[in-house]
């Protein structure tokens, strides 16, 4: 009597059909991503095979024509990371500050307006950011870049070897920094809103100022989620293509001088060089695309794991 009896939940043929159909689409989505990686690898293989994978990852130049092709993603990867880091350094404090303003300081009506404006910032096409960055942001930032290089040159990243301050990784990074504000701000806002009300009110009832509440209740709670949001912003910045392509002018020298001209990210380089460089060039660009793909995949997955753990776990 007390052995459980197996109940078949579903006898209906139509339901089985529905489940199978829906499931196959779900699996199709999965297959698609795997296929993207597989095809990129397959088609870029000639580029990897030429001098080996290690060489591809460590060579800085990108000459694919002529008798002695020599190419690799080292410089591109380096500058991708530099631009993304500048973007994070510029964008994250602004985004987190905005999120704090929205969740802690703004009156309710202003809050809704601000959130809508940030939504709008998120849908501005990146090519528009590129235009604006090139024609408006850059002329205004060049002076500041010179100022930094003159007065703060004892910090290595602010030193320069040339006096051309336009088309630099710094300017591209600032532009991308503005572009990642919406995503970082959105995650940060969500995390701040989940900070425990009890502790918050407890601190306030003890006479704490808002700053104290933020420092002692909100921030400790939000730290991990914010780390995730930073990674998310980093992933987005790494993949940003068109805006960076409009700003930078590619060079293949790895240097710490972010304020001077030079440096291009992988994504921007692909957009700029696509269709030039012959067959080997195509393969090499695909190889670069694959490296970018793997790199952003790792960063994004890491980010979503962290964000989900800190947001999802506490919501229930």
């Amino acid at each position: 009597m007390s052995t459980p009896r197996v109940v078949t939940t579903d006898h209906l043929f139509e339901d089985r059909l529905y489940r199978a159909g829906v499931k196959s689409v779900g699996i199709g989505t999965f297959v698609l991503l795997v296929a993207i990686g597989a095809f990129l690898l397959l088609k870029s293989w000639p580029a990897f095979a030429r001098h080996g994978v290690i060489s591809f990852l460590t060579t800085t130049g990108f000459t694919t024509l002529g008798h002695h092709p020599s190419f690799g993603v080292a410089a591109l990867l380096y500058w991708s990371v530099v631009i993304a880091v500048v973007a994070v350094v510029v964008g994250v404090p602004v985004a987190v500050g905005t999120a704090l303003f929205i969740s802690e300081f703004a009156p309710r009506r202003l809050r809704a307006v601000l959130v809508t404006l940030i939504d709008m910032l998120a849908v501005v096409p990146s090519v528009i950011f590129g235009l604006w960055g090139f024609y408006m942001l850059q002329p205004n930032l060049v002076g500041f870049a010179r100022f930094l290089s003159v007065h703060l040159s004892f910090i290595p990243v602010f030193s320069v070897h040339s006096s051309v301050y336009s088309s630099s990784a710094f300017i591209a990074g600032v532009l991308v920094g503005i572009m990642i504000v919406p995503i970082v701000c959105s995650v940060a806002r969500e995390i701040f809103s989940l900070a425990p009300l009890g502790e918050r009110e407890g601190a306030l009832a003890l006479g704490a100022t808002k700053a104290t509440v933020i420092r002692s209740v909100v921030m400790p709670f939000a730290r991990r989620g914010l780390a995730g949001s930073v990674m998310l912003g980093l992933g987005r910045a790494l993949g940003e293509t068109v805006a960076v392509a409009i700003i930078v002018s590619p060079s293949f020298i790895i240097s710490p001088h972010i304020l001077q001209q030079g440096g291009a990210s992988i994504a921007a380089f692909i957009a700029l060089r696509f269709g030039t460089g012959g067959q080997l060039g195509s393969a090499a660009l695909l190889g670069a695309g694959l490296v970018l793909f793997v790199f952003t995949l790792v960063v994004n997955l890491g980010a979503s794991v962290i964000v989900n753990r800190s947001v999802g776990g506490r919501r229930a």
Binding site: R236, G239, S304
Partner: peptide, 9 residues
């Protein structure tokens, strides 16, 4: 992972 896929890829 796909939602973070760079558009160029």
């Amino acid at each position: 992972a796909m939602s973070g896929l760079p558009p160029i890829v």
